[in-house]
Simulated assay, not measured.
Amino acid sequence: MKRGVLVLVAVLGAPVALLPAGAVTAGYLAVRSDSTRRSTCQELLPIEEAKVRTVRWDPPEELPDLGDYPEIHWQGRTKGNPCSRMPGPTDWAYQGVVELRPEDAQALAKRYGFVAYDPVGAQEYASSRTPEDVWPALAPFLPSEPRWLTSRVYDELDTSARWRIVYLDVEHGTVLFMLDDH
């Protein structure tokens, strides 16, 4: 009988004895894996943010009435740390330059009452939301001597869940947009 109990303890005791070691190993691997994921995320984030994208803006409702534009260049930057272990969404900021067809630029200006942008009176806008603060990678896509127009009506349309500031240069058929999650 003693031998049977020893065999039973040996058979059941080994996995039970190894359970704490397995849990520690699994916990270490999970932390290590999470740490590896975060460091990979932190390494890739600046690379992703530096990319100038040329795919059409989606959803188009965020930038209504631009027509069938021939070209767009845009970037996104995080306002937080999407690589952190904290739950919840991360807000993003976006900037882009859109080349419009001449007729679409004129129609946009008329429809939304765009007026000349006055850098001196720009206090009504956040300092990071003026044409002077365009991100460096997008600056080459701007006209060399833009004549920016702005429209509070367009900026405040409720077609987007993001805050929107748009500058329009009708002469060059160029839109500079800035969108921010909120």
Rank of each mutant, 00 (worst) to 15 (best):
P146N: 10
W92V: 14
R85V: 14
D169M: 02
E124C: 15
P140W: 03
P89I: 00
R162H: 04
T40D: 08
R162E: 11
T150S: 02
V5G: 08
K51R: 13
R77A: 07
V134Y: 01
D181G: 15
T54P: 06
A137Q: 13
R37G: 07
P20E: 08
Q106C: 01
E71V: 04
V55F: 11
G4A: 08
D68H: 13
A105D: 07
G173H: 09
R101A: 15
A139R: 04
D68A: 14
T25P: 00
D118N: 14
R164M: 09
E124M: 11
Q75S: 14
R56K: 14
G80C: 08
E48R: 05
V170I: 15
Q123D: 12
L179C: 09
Y167W: 11
P131D: 01
R164T: 12
Q75V: 15
P131W: 00
A26Q: 07
G88M: 06
A14E: 00
Y154N: 14
Y69N: 12
Y154H: 02
V120G: 10
W163R: 15
R162Q: 12
V5H: 02
F114Q: 14
W57L: 13
A122L: 04
A93D: 15
L29E: 09
G22Q: 06
T40V: 12
D169Y: 03
M86L: 02
E62P: 08
P82E: 07
D181N: 11
L168H: 00
E61R: 11
R38I: 09
D65N: 06
S127V: 13
Q106N: 12
F141L: 03
D181K: 02
P15L: 11
V153H: 10
P89T: 00
R101E: 13
L44Q: 11
R101I: 08
A10P: 01
H73G: 02
P15N: 13
V170S: 04
A21V: 10
P136E: 01
D180S: 15
V175E: 00
R147I: 10
V16A: 07
T25S: 12
P82L: 12
I47R: 14
H73A: 07
L66G: 07
Y94N: 05
E171H: 06
V9P: 09
V55E: 15
A107M: 05
M1H: 03
R77M: 08
Q106R: 10
V153Y: 07
E99W: 00
E43H: 06
R101H: 10
G27L: 12
R37Y: 10
L138S: 02
G22V: 14
D68Y: 00
